[in-house]
């Protein structure tokens, strides 16, 4: 889903940068205020971890494999979509400048799709669903929907750019990410959240332990 350079004309790419920039600044502000400033380094190591997580192949079926984006996972753990935006911005910056994966001019659009849209839609879907369906299904649907909407946004941007027609683009990106997103993003996020809840429940903003009387570990540190 990384849009490369030259797939979006320069003027439009600037608009996406201008749209993404306030979100990046807000996410920095969030990190400084909410994470009591000093904890900011944790996000740096976490971004490196997400970078590695994105390199893991996940079998989708019929010989294709996908990988996670991870914005929703980070957002759910920290209990806010801003965490997803900040971590994904860091990851996309390194991917763009060190690997040429995703463009420099189009990075604004990529941050908007994978960090902002995916993070916000995914996280708030999860929040609305978690009371009625339980946390793991909410995490699954949230991550799935987050990825799907960001793929749709990507298809629309490519259409506005005049690079790819709208309807075939929506069909291709939509169906592809509907399938990839269910297994690669939804299921894996759900399993990963459950595993984190077991090993380090103190990391999670929300209480994921089914029984409230269950003894929670003290945060070491």
């Amino acid at each position: 889903m990384h849009i490369p350079d030259s797939f979006i004309p320069f003027d439009q790419a600037l608009i996406y940068w201008a749209l993404a920039l306030p979100f990046i600044i807000m996410s920095m502000k969030w990190a400084k205020n909410e994470l009591d400033e000093m904890k900011v380094p944790i996000l740096a190591a976490l971004a490196a971890g997400i970078f590695a997580i994105q390199a893991m192949n996940i079998p989708i079926g019929m010989g294709t494999s996908g990988h996670m984006v991870g914005a929703v996972l980070v957002a759910i753990v920290f209990g806010t979509p801003w965490a997803g935006v900040l971590v994904l911005t860091l990851v996309l910056l390194v991917q763009g400048f060190a690997f040429a994966d995703g463009g420099i001019t189009t990075m604004g659009a990529n941050i908007l799709n994978m960090g902002v849209i995916s993070g916000f839609i995914g996280y708030y879907t999860y929040v609305t669903l978690r009371k009625s369906t339980g946390t793991s299904i909410a995490a699954l649907v949230g991550a799935w929907l987050g990825l799907f909407t960001s793929a749709i946004a990507c298809a629309i941007q490519m259409w506005l750019a005049g690079t790819f027609p709208l309807v075939p683009g929506l069909m291709a990106m939509g169906t592809f990410h509907l399938i990839i997103g269910f297994v690669g993003e939804g299921l894996i996020t759900s399993v990963a959240i459950a595993a984190i809840a077991k090993s380090r429940p103190d990391l999670l903003e929300d209480d994921f332990t089914a029984r409230p009387d269950k003894h929670t570990k003290e945060a070491h540190a």
Binding site: A44, L46, G49, I50, I53, A194, I196, R200
Partner: peptide, 15 residues
């Protein structure tokens, strides 16, 4: 999923 959570927790703890 467990490998993902393992990398996640390790990177958090490293931080």
């Amino acid at each position: 999923g467990h490998s993902v959570s393992s990398i996640f927790v390790r990177s958090y703890e490293q931080g």
